[in-house]
Design a protein around this nucleic acid. Sequence first.
DNA 1: CTCGTGATTGACT
DNA 2: GTCAATCACGAGC
Length: 164
Amino acid sequence: MSGRMVEVEAYIGETDRACHGRHGRTARNAAMFGKPGVAYVYFTYGLHWMFNIVTEREGFAAAILVRALEPVEGIDRMERHRPGRALSQLCSGPAKLAQALRIDKALNGVDLCARGADLWLEAGGPLASKHIGRGPRVGVDFAPEAWRAKPWRFFVKDSPFVSK
DNA sequence: CTCGTGATTGACT
DNA sequence: GTCAATCACGAGC
């Protein structure tokens, strides 16, 4: 299965009060403090898995949350994992895409740049900046205003596959 | 709008 | 060690 990333959010360092790294290194967020190019997958709200890509140097807690994909390959399998959903709703949210691609804790810590991994990244095509939208991150109302307001959500304008 | 759902966590003893 | 609150969401009304 594969998809084109059409929506992401940045979580940047221990000073970012919306970032899981804000309380320092813990067992859950350890992958965030590790090498870049690695998956950070965590469980939340009692039922949802979230897929992040670790960025920045080792020891600096930063990652990109992948919030939506445009389904490309293996759409029939994704539909089996999320029965009864329209194509545009298959991967239009962080927990939806994890369910569609069967991403869970087994993929936490995998090297997304390695050949032969169970999950990996490939280069996409070019995207002109005029097609890129940005705005505040979603679901971070718990963070202080200064951090809630950071325009660190990026998405493909006019894509029907983004989360909203 | 409301509610499910349970691992993780910081605040305690 | 214990404990209750919290939470980078989604589905259904």
